[in-house]
Design a protein around this nucleic acid. Sequence first.
DNA 1: TAATTGTATTGATAAAAATCATTTCAGCGA
DNA 2: TCGCTGAAATGATTTTTATCAATACAATTA
Lengths: 230, 230
Amino acid sequence: MTPNCNNCEFKNSSLFKNCSHDELNHINDSKCFNTYKKGQVIFHEGNRPLGLFCVFNGKVKVSRLGSDGKEQVIRLVKKGDTLGYRSLIENTKYSASAIALDDTQACFISATEFNNLIDTNVKVASDLMRMLAKVLGDTQDKLVHLAMKPVRERLAEALLLLKSTYDDKKAEHFSISISREDLSSIVGTAKETVIRFLSEFKEEGIVSTRGSEITILRADKLLQISSLYD
Amino acid sequence: MTPNCNNCEFKNSSLFKNCSHDELNHINDSKCFNTYKKGQVIFHEGNRPLGLFCVFNGKVKVSRLGSDGKEQVIRLVKKGDTLGYRSLIENTKYSASAIALDDTQACFISATEFNNLIDTNVKVASDLMRMLAKVLGDTQDKLVHLAMKPVRERLAEALLLLKSTYDDKKAEHFSISISREDLSSIVGTAKETVIRFLSEFKEEGIVSTRGSEITILRADKLLQISSLYD
DNA sequence: TAATTGTATTGATAAAAATCATTTCAGCGA
DNA sequence: TCGCTGAAATGATTTTTATCAATACAATTA
């Protein structure tokens, strides 16, 4: 049931790819394997981080809630990704919450274990640094696009982000089941506004929907729409 | 003229606070001291980073330009701050430009020198990591506020950001000379919109202006306005 | 000091998006 | 299969913000 780190699907692609066999064994012995139902909170804004999550399966959103109840998604997390490292490094409370978008499984590594690892393995530390730099760059992109692009463009971009993050290439066209509420908090707009532009995309044959499931038929068109302002 | 690292005002507060005397000497010997006039470009979006800047004096904005000419400020940089590290760590082209908001002086440390330092001094590397985490957190805050707060709130926040970044506490009230164009690209809105809300703030006795100079009279009120949605 | 130039300001209008209200649809349990 | 429920979709309207146009002001220089 619980995956073994030395045998993990993400052994060569995760943050821990430069760990030794022994280091992985050590992590494996101390880690904790958790299962989350769709919609379940993995960690909550304001709480103290006790360790790091390593997503084994599923989809996770990292988001913040405004006082008016509006939500903004900061990051999408997929299997193989680590989760919750920023607060851990800064040693501050979580500034956002992580919520499962699907049934999700994740390993939990304690803070001491993690800190010990990055203190002793320089390669992991420098991989972590590069990861932070990468995520910072992505976040800056998001910021700029939010400020400069209209909703239609941002929606196209969000759909492409979902595709590039979660496409397993098992089907001809990428499909995802996502509530319009969630989609709108990725785009940073109102639910109804997202629905309206989605309807436009449907009329233009770019996407199709069935209930909450969205299928991307023409990723090329989305790319074109999303980069009108680049 | 050129400041000596081992005697620098920011020796104990900069990214290099955990460098040894010898390391600082080494940096000092290889560094390059540059002067930039107000409005001058320090580095330009799309170029390859050749090293790291350490701001000695002045004010700098890091911003990106959209294809329509609109600008979005990503970060404000003050004396003692380092500049240009993200692209350097990721080893990618600059994704944004750095432009002097005032006459500015900065030391330039070559990429090899810098990489050598973080490879050999673990403390500097871990300070750098914490700095990245901090800046990432700040950027996420910006993103969320941009998505959730209306312009009035964001303007109040931007004025407080300017104050907290550049206030040298030499005067009773904090003043800054900033073009409405620059201010609007910090807030992420149109110039005229910023001016309108500034005028409101003036009527309410929160700020006063003289030409492009803005004086903050009631920071408490700005804080109140900016946090309506928190 | 007067003219000039660029920026700040104000006003009028248009566009974009949010909000509120209503209808339609899909999934689900009885 | 039929309701039932919650989410998706559409419509009408309001609010917010952007844009365009005109004026006022401040700094600079002839």
